[in-house]
């Protein structure tokens, strides 16, 4: 919890803070949890003064209060439903990606996830002047591949250059890098330095395999999810995350070898919509199914084709 410091309130000067620290009141939460009369006794401040500090701190650190009508208006004006560029996918998504949501794309290896990501990033950059973030965790982003996809879709050279300049690529190696990146994006959006609607993270599992302590792993996933929610809801972006499905060949039960979703139990419930992509054998066609969603129809399916010009 936030540590008390003199910048928080004019009455929280050094002697007051020292007195509080001596009684193990280090953080804002400690201060609020302690009864006012105890604080008065420790710091020799007036009751009214402590009440004032308390009110100020609660105001500062509690969540912003929004009334229903203005919240609704904010969502209507600032959210965006933007097309994925893939007609059939748009139809099962009821229009495309909606800001404020976290989407997950999962599939077995070589099912077309990276292809789908490239198509999405190309389409969204093509249809607007906004930036798109592509956060690459396993060095899979290939500029040449993107250019090949753009060239195959017969985009003219100038436009290709412009689209490629809109796409911001971040190569991250560790989960710490990813969290630092997400906070950086938050600051950039807060200072209105960039305008963003879509952040793609390809993919999450590689960042967590090196962390064997599951408590630490889940703690880091929670922190990552918290800042993702801030980016999605407060700054009106859509976040698309890639996850793996692994075939559990150690489990020889009579059930189908359906994929096991990576990242564990906590993450399972985080995305607002989970899309599963499956490639048909010996074909360039894939099916995309809505496996789970808060607002869309679960089980809705569409078939798409992988071509040189991306996924259509």
């Amino acid at each position: 919890m936030s540590r008390l410091n003199p910048q928080m309130h004019p009455l929280l000067n050094s002697p007051v803070l020292e007195a509080l620290l001596a009684k193990n009141i280090y953080t804002v939460l400690n201060f609020i949890e302690t009864e006012i009369k105890h604080i008065v006794a420790i710091t020799n401040l007036q009751y009214k003064e402590v009440l004032g500090i308390r009110k100020h701190l609660i105001n500062k650190y509690a969540a912003v209060t929004r009334d229903g009508v203005s919240y609704y208006n904010e969502i209507i004006t600032k959210s965006a439903l933007f097309s994925t560029g893939i007609k059939r996918l748009d139809s099962i998504l009821q229009g495309g990606f909606l800001t404020g949501n976290i989407y997950e794309i999962c599939g077995l290896p070589a099912s077309g996830k990276t292809q789908l990501n490239l198509t999405l990033v190309r389409n969204v950059a093509q249809n607007s002047i906004l930036n798109v973030y592509y956060i690459d965790t396993k060095n899979d982003f290939s500029g040449r591949k993107l250019k090949a996809v753009l060239d195959a879709s017969k985009t003219d050279e100038e436009h290709v250059k412009q689209i490629m300049s809109q796409i911001l690529v971040k190569k991250v190696d560790t989960v710490h890098d990813l969290i630092n990146t997400l906070y950086e994006i938050k600051n950039l959006l807060y200072t209105k330095t960039i305008k963003l609607r879509l952040i793609i993270i390809d993919s999450l599992p590689p960042l967590f395999y090196s962390i064997s302590d599951f408590s630490k792993r889940y703690g880091l996933i929670t922190t990552m999810v918290n800042v993702m929610h801030v980016l999605a809801k407060e700054f009106h972006t859509a976040i698309v995350v890639t996850n793996v499905l692994t075939t559990s060949y150690e489990n020889t039960s009579t059930e189908d070898i359906s994929g096991k979703i990576g990242l564990g139990k906590y993450w399972y419930n985080v995305p607002n919509t989970r899309l599963t992509i499956k490639k048909f054998e010996n074909s360039s066609e894939c099916s995309i199914i809505i496996a789970k969603s808060n607002r869309l129809l679960e089980g809705a399916q569409c078939n798409v084709k992988i071509t040189d010009a991306g996924i259509i």
């Binding site: 804002v28 609660i58 509690a62 969540a63 912003v64 229903g68 918290n226 929610h229």
Partner: peptide, 23 residues
């Protein structure tokens, strides 16, 4: 009219949640 009755607090971490309770 119904929405006038609603107040929404979006929390993003534990400190914010507990402070919201106090609020």
């Amino acid at each position: 009219k119904c929405l006038k009755n609603l107040t929404v607090l979006n929390c993003y971490d534990n400190e914010q949640l507990q402070m919201s309770f106090y609020n």
